[in-house]
Nucleic acid binder design. Structure first.
Lengths: 149, 149
DNA sequence: GCCGAGGTTTACGTTAACGTAAAGTGCTTG
DNA sequence: CAAGCACTTTACGTTAACGTAAACCTCGGC
């Protein structure tokens, strides 16, 4: 785990609103991933940046997609699952009824997943509290001042 | 993802309290994993059941360990990370100060991770709401009654 | 006494998600 | 114009977390 704190990076910071584009290296730095990762996501159908010559040009929309993808990953979704949602989202306007129904199903599934994760987090939190207090007890029993946190 | 709903399975249901043991197959059924998975966790140092002959006998404590392990997995922890906490927890009474300090560090790290996940879930929830409402709009635009959920 | 159900070990196979290395392209800067 | 830097493609390597298959034991029942 030990994820660095790029957190939800990628704010544009009040620029000319919309004509900002990014190179693959810029995006990589912003989100603290390697260019290889970004190219891999494209190969998996999660991104489709424009090209100038053979160089990739990422627009604002691409940046958002990448952000959502990484968030999904942190929540344990596979790239395939993420693609399933992201692509349907894009194809929505001309999506037929069956597709949309399917999308709603998927969303419900994801939602259930999030609920379970919330519960897991609650429980895990308790465990951590327990382990920590036990550790602090033992420490002070050793005459060592534990860090106040 | 699409995790089945064994959820937090594995309640003993008011039995003689404590002398209950389990075969590998029983545990596998309870938690909806394969015996292979359970053996693998043992090989990775997450479980250490007793043996009768060469057959594994799991006690209540083993069951709890497995439960915690699976919960950790659902939260995206690697087996190595889970082992790190679980084993230190067990070795606590005779753990030296350095070990315990390290444990507290790890716990803080996990905690930070959970915080981030909570935020991610909040955000993801919003996205799902957005996608879903858009989908419902399009659907009703097609004259199709979307499921009331 | 044999059979099937469940357990065991050993070992090779598989999948996802990248890492890494090689070899080439293209700009711009001293 | 040579060097360097950022980009590209191609392709093989790696790790985690199991799956799967083969070959074996062992026990209760008929």
């Amino acid at each position: 785990m030990t994820q660095r704190t790029a957190s939800d990076a990628g704010q544009t910071g009040g620029l000319p609103r919309q004509r900002r584009t990014f190179s693959i290296g810029e995006l990589a730095k912003i989100f603290e991933v390697t260019p290889r990762t970004i190219r891999f996501y494209e190969q998996e159908g999660l991104l489709a940046p424009e090209r100038r010559g053979q160089t990739r040009i990422y627009c604002e929309k691409d940046r958002v997609r990448l952000k959502l993808t990484l968030r999904g990953k942190r929540l344990g979704f596979s790239l395939a699952e993420i693609r399933e949602v992201v692509m349907m989202y894009d194809a929505m306007p001309d999506g037929n009824a069956r597709q949309l129904q399917r999308l709603l199903e998927i969303l419900a599934d994801k939602r259930a997943n999030l609920e379970r994760q919330l519960e897991d987090i609650r429980l895990m939190h308790k465990e951590l509290d327990d382990v920590e207090s036990r550790a602090r007890e033992v420490l002070s029993g050793l005459g060592v001042e534990p860090p106040k946190h």
